[in-house]
Design a protein around this nucleic acid. Structure first.
Length: 528
DNA sequence: AAAAAAG
């Protein structure tokens, strides 16, 4: 089996191996298409498990001939950026270097003002306003009208920078806080570049880690595309089963990776004409169980001039390093500080002693002030069910969502919560990422999160689009060892943390989380 | 380590 160059990319030090690289550069390669993630050996020869998204770099291999070959494949696939609309920088050089440097200065100032950090070559200037979207990039009026109707007034920093990058056909990875408008940042350039429906087949694919997020993205996309003929399809069970699925007219396909892979394998889907591929919540998509599926989708998108982009609120170094070695001259955009929480959320820590204290604390919290809608996160499905059973007889409209429910049940849970019929939604991490519920007032971490990223995404369900929000994290004696990790996120986003917590030792998240026994008032005596 | 991805 061929070694993965996905993982070899991590340990590739260009300077150190410059000699070896030049030695192999002239050689003919055996790979025909540029591939994003080829041959992902999640299980290596030694049987070790590698998980990029969790920053697991257990195995560092020495560079061998195969790696160098693979590397040179990427080098040679580098395309020239398509500078159709965005060659104003180029022309300004010819007009005079002075004006060019003035523009660079303006860009730098604008980026500083909006807390935009970029790296990469030849980066398009950030946009200042929707007006500029029209003047600089000839945005069609239907889109501007939809934007106005949907209440878009100003561009957010991620939109200012990511939109011009994608419009100029450049690849990018973008890291911006939860609720800061990432979805629009990739939908807008896709709609603008595809212009209108065509019979060419699928031209844009958006991958999301959960069905709920895919559904939400599809809905947003349809709203934005109103007044223009576009075929925007959400891949559901129904759609795949439908008889003429292979003849489906579709411009933009939104799905979870598994379904796309399955359809591609059955030759029901042709992705060779895809021009845009977005990996939303990319760090999640790079996790152990998902990365293989994502890889096969990326491979199926064989169009050499494809524009790929990664979006997330959390971007671990490992994922970024990996993507950097294999993407085409990608631009990196970070808004604010990397891996930080939204600053609109008031974050609190509450000590509950032991597991038994949690239920009491939660009821107390509801008794004091129940300000719906409220989201309660627990560690796993079992606990979600238990907590729901415990609370459903209280005088609260409570519901639960986790992956053991079927597609319709899950959809209903989300819809009822959106409609305000449910006040308190108990959830696993299924809906921790990307979901945009209107004005969630409070997120409660009933169970301590499994990672800083999980924490950031969970609490990011509130405090969206500039609104304020509240996040309460319950912690037990057993959780105190990981408290510092959450506390770091809190201080980084401007929340106060007691000094004794900040003086705790810096402990890495451990794999073996404290075992939590059942949530039940009846069981309490037996446990003790 | 668990959750999620789906047949």
């Amino acid at each position: 089996m061929a070694d993965s160059f996905l993982f070899s990319g991590i340990s590739l030090d260009r300077k150190r191996f410059a000699k070896d690289i030049s030695r192999f550069k002239g050689k003919k390669d055996t790979v025909e298409n540029p591939i994003f993630l080829d041959n992902v050996n999640v299980e290596t020869k030694d049987g070790e498990q590698l998980d990029v998204a969790r920053g697991n770099k257990k195995r560092k291999r020495k560079l061998n001939e195969h790696d160098v070959k693979s590397f040179s494949v990427f080098k040679r696939c580098n395309r020239k950026p398509k500078n159709e609309e965005d060659d104003h920088q180029e022309s300004e050089i010819s007009q005079g270097k002075k004006e060019y440097f003035r523009q660079l200065e303006r860009d730098a100032l604008s980026r500083k003002k909006h807390n935009i950090h970029v790296s990469g070559s030849n980066i398009p200037s950030p946009l200042e306003s929707f007006v500029e979207l029209k003047s600089r990039y000839k945005c069609k009026s239907y889109l501007l009208r939809n934007l106005a109707e949907l209440g878009f007034r100003e561009l957010t920093p991620i939109q200012m920078q990511a939109i011009p990058i994608l419009l100029s056909g450049r690849e990018c990875f973008a890291c911006a806080p939860t609720g800061s408008g990432k979805t629009f940042a990739f939908l807008c350039p896709i709609l603008m570049r595809l212009k209108h429906a065509s019979k060419d087949g699928i031209r844009a694919v958006i991958l999301c880690p959960t069905r709920e997020l895919a559904a939400q993205t599809a809905r947003e996309c349809k709203k934005l595309a109103k007044r223009n003929k576009f075929y925007i399809k959400l891949m559901t069970k129904q759609l795949v089963k439908s008889a003429d699925f292979s003849k489906l007219q579709c411009d933009i396909l939104i799905s979870t990776p598994y379904r796309v892979r399955a359809a591609v394998r059955k030759k029901k889907l042709n992705l060779s004409r895809v021009e845009f591929l977005v990996l939303d919540e990319s760090d999640k998509l790079f996790e152990l169980g998902l990365v293989k599926q994502v890889d096969s989708v990326v491979k199926a998108c064989s169009n050499p001039s494809i524009v790929r982009s990664l979006f997330s609120a959390t971007l671990p170094d490992t994922v970024e390093e990996l993507a950097r070695t294999i993407m085409h001259d990608a631009i990196r955009v970070i808004i604010g500080r990397k891996n930080s929480a939204s600053e609109c959320i008031k974050q609190k820590l509450v000590f509950v002693g032991s597991e038994e204290g949690k239920l009491l604390a939660l009821r107390q919290c509801f008794a004091e002030s129940l300000n719906p809608p409220v989201l309660v996160f627990v560690q796993n499905k079992e606990r979600a069910k238990q907590l729901h059973d415990e609370l459903k007889f209280d005088d609260i409209r409570v519901d639960v969502i986790h992956s053991d429910l079927n597609e319709i049940q899950r959809e209903n849970a989300v819809d009822n919560f959106r409609a305000g019929k449910t006040w308190v939604l108990i959830a696993t991490d299924v809906i921790a990422r990307g979901m945009d519920f209107k004005g969630i007032n409070c997120v409660i971490n009933y169970d301590f999160p499994d990672s800083s990223a999980a924490y950031i995404h969970r609490i990011g369900r509130s405090g969206r689009a500039g609104r304020s929000g509240e996040a309460i994290t319950l912690y037990t004696e057993a959780d105190t060892r990981y408290l510092r990790n959450v506390a770091n996120v809190m201080t980084a986003s401007g929340c106060e943390v007691p000094s004794w917590i900040m003086s705790l030792p810096k402990l890495k998240w451990k794999k073996h989380r404290p075992h939590r026994h059942a949530i039940s008032t009846k069981l309490k005596d037996e446990e003790e």
